[in-house]
Amino acid sequence: MQNNQAKSTEQVSKQVKTGTTKLVFTVIAMFGFGFALVPLYDVFCDITGLNGKTATEATTYKADHIDKSRLITVQFISRTAQGAAWQFKPEMNSIQVHPGEMKFVKFYAKNESGQHAIGQAIPSVSPGIAANYFQKIECFCFNQQPLKASEDVWMPLQFYVDPELPEDINELTLSYTLFDVTASKDS
């Protein structure tokens, strides 16, 4: 009896150790999973176009027709993030486009910080679901914009709205936030 007990204690000890090892690996895996959520969400949103993020690279014109029966209002909003001492505004507040029709709009930026700075504009489309239908042939947001002190620039945006845009959407808002990324560029 005494013998049996001792043996089983050893067995239990072994089982406890394997169990613990497995759980420790689970913990490490879940820590990794937390970080993996970042690219996972991005891929998910990319496919479904859920979060209003537009493409980060230029596309070519692919629409097969211009839908004259619909008229979409595209509103432009521009703002500067905290710490970016820039002037930043679109040449017009909104524009009317037929789906499939190409449009060209300019945005004005001026560096008022008194020193050399690099700006980066981040776009966002609302409603989010429309982001996948807002196609940019050319956009200043694809590149960073360096400006010397008091220098200004007109920056181009060329886009069209995909004719496949869901019927119930008649108005899009394209919002740009301009960030000062000089610090992270220099270091």
Binding site: F33, F35, Q120, S184
Partner: peptide
């Protein structure tokens, strides 16, 4: 709990080490 540890780690690196997990500028 490991996911929470990951989240606070991302907040830490975003704040002090220049990563941009939650920063639109990056």
């Amino acid at each position: 709990m490991p996911v929470l540890a990951g989240t606070v780690t991302m907040v830490l690196t975003d704040t002090y080490f220049g990563t941009s997990f939650f920063d639109a500028a990056g």
